[in-house]
Computed example of a mutant assay.
Amino acid sequence: MKLKSLLSAGAVVGASLMFTSLQPLSVKAQEFTASHLEAARQLVIETKALESFDDILPLLAEQTRTLFIQSDPARTQEVVDVSTEVALKLASKRTELNNMVYEVWARRFTEEELIQLADFYRSPIGQKLAKNGPTVTALAIGAARQWQDKISTEMVALVREELDKRAAE
């Protein structure tokens, strides 16, 4: 189950990064002051926004292992060893993702706004939001899905009832 949720998360992250890279060059080429990017970095740290990306590299390593093991099961241990070594080498590239995230925030907020937001997230209520935000969001999405399923069933029943009524007339 965890692999399935990681795959979904990986797909969302990949789509988000692809969308970011497809933005117009004029936006992408925007230059930020060091202090603006530092304000974005501070906010990202305070919001714990990078934590959701921590599973990307392990997930990619697992997917790569699976691919190679399926191709040549006799080399399973070798594939595990090599894919782990490569994943550890690639870990240093994580700063590229972090910098991309800082720029995403810097594009959407002024330096002053980023500072104000970081100050908020340093407050007790901001820390509580950073800690509980992902759980609350997941629960809200779950509630929306549950409501959608209920309404869908109700809609089908009501449409069927109305169509049957009209057919009888």
Rank of each mutant, 00 (worst) to 15 (best):
Q70C: 05
V79T: 02
E162C: 10
A61M: 06
E112S: 07
T110M: 01
V13T: 08
P124C: 00
R75A: 14
E103C: 03
I45L: 13
A130Y: 06
I125H: 12
Q127G: 05
K131Q: 13
A138V: 15
L139D: 14
D164C: 11
E38W: 08
R107Q: 00
L7C: 12
L57H: 01
E169T: 15
Q127I: 03
K28W: 00
L59W: 15
Y121L: 03
L3A: 11
T110C: 02
T64G: 05
P58A: 05
V27M: 08
E51F: 15
L158S: 15
Q23W: 06
F109W: 00
D149N: 11
I45W: 08
L67T: 08
I125K: 11
E169I: 12
M155H: 10
T95M: 02
W105E: 01
I125T: 13
L17K: 00
K28D: 00
L129Y: 07
A118Q: 02
A118G: 02
Q148S: 13
S5V: 07
S152K: 09
L88H: 07
T76Y: 01
A87D: 03
Y121F: 08
K89G: 06
E62Q: 14
D72F: 08
G14P: 12
E111D: 05
M100W: 00
R94F: 03
K89M: 10
L50Y: 15
E62L: 09
A140I: 04
Q30W: 03
T95C: 03
E85H: 08
S71K: 09
G14F: 07
D81W: 05
R145F: 14
L158Q: 07
G10T: 07
P58V: 04
A49V: 03
F120Q: 01
K128Y: 11
L17E: 00
R166W: 09
K131H: 08
R65K: 13
F109P: 00
A11V: 07
L60F: 07
V82N: 06
K2L: 09
S123N: 05
E96I: 01
Q127A: 04
Q148Y: 08
Q63V: 04
K4P: 11
L6I: 09
V86E: 01
Q148T: 09
E162V: 14
F120E: 00
S26C: 05
T47R: 12
V82M: 06
L129D: 15
K165A: 14
Q127V: 04
V13C: 13
T33A: 12
S152H: 13
T20W: 00
